[in-house]
Design a protein around this nucleic acid. Structure first.
Lengths: 343, 343
DNA sequence: CTGTTAGCGCGTTCAG
DNA sequence: CTGAACGCGCTAACAG
């Protein structure tokens, strides 16, 4: 009765062993399913385990076995964004399938916070980390700088380091969306972009321009705008574009926030401009006006990232070169609901 | 040079000590900020730490100090639901503020999975668990059955056990929404509920009925429907209600899925029925028709839950009785955007 | 089949 | 101010 049953103190193997009048080793073996334990012993031990509601300490176990924590780190910029929560679900499902758990960290887009989160997770001896980088400096994410701790970047490619990554086909998706607008007869298309410093922003702009050029259309700088990540900023810029003497007949927005802003601008001005945007807008078929969006399987991003990570973790032979997985996109058209009144 | 620098093997304190030609103890003290270390020693140690990119093993540290893992468990039914991801963000923000990390687990609504997740987290020695219970059996969530491990239930009250919880004012929110419909002149209101077995479903029904009764209106069983958690099921039931000889002039939907189904049904039939629903529908001002929703601060649910949990964890004296925190609701009206065309 | 010894990486305790 | 011994909870490696 040395260290037992104080409220809040879990019993140890020794407590169980004492209760069952066996050695701790027998308890250990029983709990690990070692076959060389006689049925009677096994029964006696299990009875004591139940009686004491004993639960093996995975931390101590991991320390001894050398096997690490069974934890995957997941560092995202904004968990409340449905995009990242679906990604998180994708990661969780694969992790769980491998008996691992996921530790999350939210950076809020702050690079320093990202650094300290990664550091903290490394100290907790997670088996690997999936990161949606907040900035362009990825030096602290290089496995080489982390004693070989596997890292996978999600939705952004590494900048200079050898790191696995899963990215969305930003270029192709934007190209297709713009091409569709062109096919509908639009020759002047306003573009509401992200900062060009973001890889994702640059790619989406590139795709947009590529589609224009392939259609033999000029890329007018006056129609290309960059939007800060603010809420109403996109709306303001869209209003500006639509208010020009020679307004565009269509808008392409480089992410969901921009798309919403553009939609509001169009609705407010009563413009008939067509609208397309990157990222899905789940209930857009309930909107008053039609809209096209570039969608992709967000959960798949998480699953593939987890896959790459788990391969590295389990990996006997490590791939020499970092791998890049690209998730494809689909152009989806949302048409307003029509009641029988109009049919 | 015994256990050092194999790729994938982190250095230990001994490695650092060897590198700095001091005893491991000096390294330990330096890293913990123990003042009784001479500046020169301190420098030498820190230099070696940097050189080896050493990172202290928090697992081993926790084992020795007795302080637990610094981990909070968060078990939800469906992470991809924006509701729970905001809740998760709320939990994460408070946990981070206290230097803790969050381990997530997704049950998919499966009670067995919930049990094994809680079990697993207990084995990992998390300091506390926040659970959105998948069912009505909470016996495995009772701290008494978990050696005093603190537990907080989110969005559902405990059923029989002494467990802290944070719930939404489901009753009040529903009552207010229905009262608003009544005030608009609606006397026959269809109700699209959840199963009555869910606490949340029962409360929302109760609130709806209370509002009717307070207005002196009869509660017609024929207008009360229960909807399975399927996607289109709510739509089907709503169509049924609207197709009656004596259809309701308004619908109240008990959650966001039901609201969407009801909205679709109304749009399809060209009905003029008014619509209100529990849970926010973020971009509903872009919808073609107006709609009222009962909203509440989802992040606040997570933050308050984390607060209760952290209090229990830090707690010198434990509150004898379980605590219930109720999060208030707001009735929010979404009006379709109006361009100057109609003004 | 079971028990004993030793040690995972670290920190407390007590000597120097 | 620094180091040596011991132990956190658990499990390999070796006895018996």
């Amino acid at each position: 009765m040395s260290s037992s049953m104080a409220p809040g103190n879990s019993p140890t193997m020794r407590d169980v062993a004492a209760h069952a009048a066996v050695s701790p080793m027998t308890v250990s073996r029983t709990l690990r399913g070692d076959p060389r334990v006689s049925p009677e012993m096994r029964e006696r031990v299990l009875a004591s385990v139940e009686a004491l509601r004993y639960r093996r300490n995975d931390l101590a176990r991991g320390l001894r076995t050398g096997r690490s924590s069974g934890l995957l780190g997941l560092v995202v910029t904004n968990l409340s964004n449905p995009f990242y929560s679906e990604l998180a679900l994708g990661v969780e499902s694969l992790a769980s399938a491998g008996g691992m758990r996921v530790v999350i960290g939210n950076t809020g887009g702050d690079l320093d916070r990202e650094r300290q989160l990664v550091d903290d997770m490394a100290s907790r001896r997670v088996d690997g980390i999936i990161v949606v980088p907040a900035g362009n400096d990825h030096s602290h994410l290089d496995p080489a700088a982390l004693h070989g701790l596997p890292v996978v970047l999600a939705t952004r490619p590494p900048s200079g380091q050898d790191i696995d990554c899963v990215v969305v086909d930003d270029f192709g998706g934007s190209r297709r969306a713009t091409a569709a607008l062109v096919a509908q007869g639009h020759h002047r298309i306003g573009f509401l972009g992200l900062g060009r410093s973001l890889w994702t922003g640059a790619e989406r702009l590139r795709g947009h321009c590529a589609a224009l050029e392939e259609a033999g259309l000029a890329v007018e700088d006056a129609l290309l705008r960059s939007v800060a990540p603010d809420a109403g900023a996109a709306e303001t810029l869209a209003l500006e574009l639509l208010g020009r003497d020679d307004p565009p007949t269509a808008l392409f927005a480089a992410n969901n926030r921009n798309t919403v802003g553009a939609y509001r601008a169009i609705a407010e001005t009563g413009s008939f401009a067509a609208l397309a945007g990157f990222d899905d807008l789940p209930l857009a078929d309930l909107f008053a006006a039609p809209i096209s969006v570039v969608t992709y399987d967000t959960g798949e991003v998480g699953r593939r990232a987890a896959e790459l990570l788990l391969e590295r973790i389990a990996g006997e032979q490590q791939p020499a070169h970092p791998r890049i997985v690209t998730i494809g996109t689909t152009l989806k058209r949302y048409q307003p609901l029509r009641g029988p009144a109009s049919g």
